[in-house]
């Protein structure tokens, strides 16, 4: 099992906003969606630049470029990195978060890592768009303590327009995980001009409210911080601009969710 390889673009320690407490986040390469505002554009492509961790081999001479290239890693290499911060997980109640890109884009690699962490009693969190076949969701759910699930748009046409894919499978999977009794945090990236209008957010609240169980909501305000990454990657960067219906600010969204009996907070 430890011979299974996968492509990742970073391992970040002291990740404190990717799930509860002190965590190590492993960023997977590849994502089915193509949200044009994505703040991790280096995760979109499944390809990697390095054969192994350039930090170990010093193949790349610039720390800033390491994550932009990505490398092919192994379960044992990643487990070695994760284990380094075990004392911090134990003290804080933290653990590991698999993010990306989308970790479900490489399901076998993800499952191997989840199993390895499970054997060492490390708390596991999966941060995903939930765009994957139901059987993969079911099987990952058995090895995951916490799901961080993005809810980007309730309108199918607009979802398709902004992310390149329809939202049916995503909404179905959220319902599935809810029915399976999984622990879930719903994350709403608040993108002005895309999904921050009252109509969409009200629809989102209703959807969350209709789930069998009440799940907490993390509001992720949009930050204009990814521009330099787009430039370095040679990708076009589109500035987010508020247009169309008026955008709600995070505080207003907290209030809106509250009116549906839902508890929301800023950040995650």
């Amino acid at each position: 099992m430890t011979s299974i390889t996968g492509n990742i673009f970073n391992i970040k320690r002291y990740a404190i906003h990717d799930g509860p407490n002190i965590r190590t986040t492993v960023f997977f390469k590849g994502c089915s969606l193509s949200c044009w505002w994505c703040h991790n554009p280096e995760g979109k492509s499944p390809e990697v630049r390095f054969k192994s961790n350039p930090r170990q081999t010093f193949e790349s001479s610039d720390e800033k470029l390491v994550p932009l290239g990505g490398w092919t890693s192994t379960v044992s290499e990643i487990m070695g990195e994760i284990r380094k911060d075990l004392p911090f997980f134990q003290e804080s109640g933290g653990g590991v978060t698999f993010s990306g890109g989308d970790p479900l884009y490489q399901p076998e690699f993800l499952q191997a890592l989840l199993k390895a962490c499970g054997q060492e009693n490390i708390h596991r969190s999966v941060d995903t768009s939930a765009h994957a076949p139901a059987e993969i969701i079911r099987s990952v759910a058995g090895e995951t303590e916490l799901w961080l699930l993005d809810l980007k748009h309730m309108d199918n046409t607009l979802h398709l327009k902004h992310t390149g894919l329809e939202n049916g499978l995503i909404l179905q999977n959220i319902k599935l995980l809810d029915a399976l009794g999984a622990e879930i945090r719903i994350r709403i990236p608040l993108i002005p001009g895309v999904n921050a209008d009252e109509q969409n957010l009200t629809a989102s609240a209703k959807f969350i409210c209709d789930l069998e169980r009440k799940h907490p909501i993390d509001i992720l305000p949009y930050h204009d911080t990814a521009a330099s990454k787009y430039r370095t990657l040679g990708l076009d960067y589109r500035q987010v601009q508020a247009s169309g219906p008026e955008s709600l600010n995070p505080e207003q969204l907290i209030e809106l969710m509250g009116s549906y009996g839902l508890s929301a907070q800023i950040g995650g």
Partner: peptide, 22 residues
């Protein structure tokens, strides 16, 4: 930003306590 929320402060506390245990 790393110390903005109460949860961030709790994590700072855990970082300190872990260092001290080590």
């Amino acid at each position: 930003d790393v110390l903005a929320s109460d949860q961030d402060l709790k994590n700072l506390g855990s970082l300190i306590r872990t260092y001290f245990k080590l």
